[in-house]
Design a protein around this nucleic acid. Structure first.
Length: 107
DNA sequence: AAGTTGACTCTAC
DNA sequence: CGTAGAGCCAACT
């Protein structure tokens, strides 16, 4: 049943560390969701108890209708947004501090 | 059953 | 940086 997937998605979102952010695609990949859209659906339906404000779109901008509050909440957690956009490079999953590579080559 | 919709993403121009 | 199209999946009409 997809109930399990639903719960798994919730679990992954809950597991996102405070002060960091993740994209819908990330949640989808980590939870095994077939598509990022499912993540959005779960959040819309049952995200009231989850740290939904840590979930951003692939370009670092939050969903249009929530943008205002989301950025506000993130700011309260120490995630500083550059305009309407959040620096995914810096806050996304808190990637390793060093990749033996110059800037821009990460990921 | 077929068409829309939506807290999405990617590639192309 | 912007728009456009295609792919995507489950719920809703």
């Amino acid at each position: 049943m997809d109930d399990e997937l639903h719960e798994r998605i919730r679990a992954v979102i809950t597991g996102v560390p405070a002060g960091t952010v993740a994209t819908y695609g990330d949640i989808a990949a980590l939870s095994g969701a077939p598509s990022p859209r499912l993540v959005g659906r779960v959040l819309a339906e049952d995200g009231h108890d989850l740290p939904w404000h840590r979930i951003l779109r692939a370009d670092g901008t939050p969903a249009p209708h929530l943008a205002h509050e989301q950025l506000e909440r993130l700011r309260a957690e120490g995630v500083l947004a550059d305009g309407p956009r959040v620096n995914l490079r810096k806050y996304r999953r808190q990637v390793e501090p060093d990749s033996a590579d110059g800037p821009g080559t990460l990921f």
